[in-house]
Design a protein around this nucleic acid. Structure first.
Lengths: 108, 108
DNA sequence: TTCTCATATGAAATTTGTTTCATATAAACA
DNA sequence: TGTTTATATGAAACAAATTTCATATGAGAA
């Protein structure tokens, strides 16, 4: 029954693989193997990340036969990302320092 | 001229010391030494974190004699933290898994 | 049942981030 | 100028997070 902190919550958005998972799920719910296909990398690694995201209720899961279907908590995720876009807007979308000036997938 | 990513942006909220700095600045702008007094730890460490926060425009700086006065980008920081509070609200404020159920300072 | 497929889990290996330490810079002042 | 104060910076030491690897679990099909 470990309490998760703010740090923990935000950490779920501060990693390329996890943002990839979130992006993948924007088109709708997916099973683990479908997510792996989309984001690439090891199944076990994706699984670890899914666990972390789920623990913070950033993702939801349901069982379906032997599959687990993950879906976005849109109510939290979308406003979160929009806030960042808005923040970037504040520097005219061409800030050299902040630099959040292109869609999620195009960044490294 | 390095472009900072979403990961980078969120990483600034996913660290205890940096959240401490943000909390300290909620009462108004402070100089580096005042921040150090409030959050504790090495001056150079605080300085590194300030640099990181500033690069993402989460903080602003202005010179004042030999001091540097840092201030919150409230427009971004407050909605960000409120969003998390709201997210927690979704589990009634007593979720065992998500656990973001008490003020910033009281968590570990 | 046994086999296969889908996913999870734990621990070791690796990578990345944080902290500390020593020192640099820059402003004010004697 | 030389000294003190405030802050920044780079690199090494240290800590934490991520990835991989090997294997476990669990559901459905043969």
């Amino acid at each position: 029954m470990k309490q998760i902190s703010y740090e923990n919550f935000f950490a779920n958005f501060s990693n390329k693989t996890r943002l990839g998972i979130l992006t993948a799920l924007m088109d709708g719910p997916l099973s683990v193997s479908e997510i792996v296909d989309k984001v690439g990398g090891e199944q076990s690694n994706v699984s670890h990340h899914l666990e972390s995201l789920r623990k913070c209720s950033i993702l939801n899961v349901k069982k379906e036969g032997k599959k687990r279907i993950y879906s976005l908590n849109k109510k939290t995720v979308y406003p979160m990302l929009e806030l960042v876009e808005k923040h970037v807007g504040g520097c005219g979308g061409s800030c050299e320092e902040c630099g959040l000036c292109s869609p999620v997938g195009e960044r490294k």
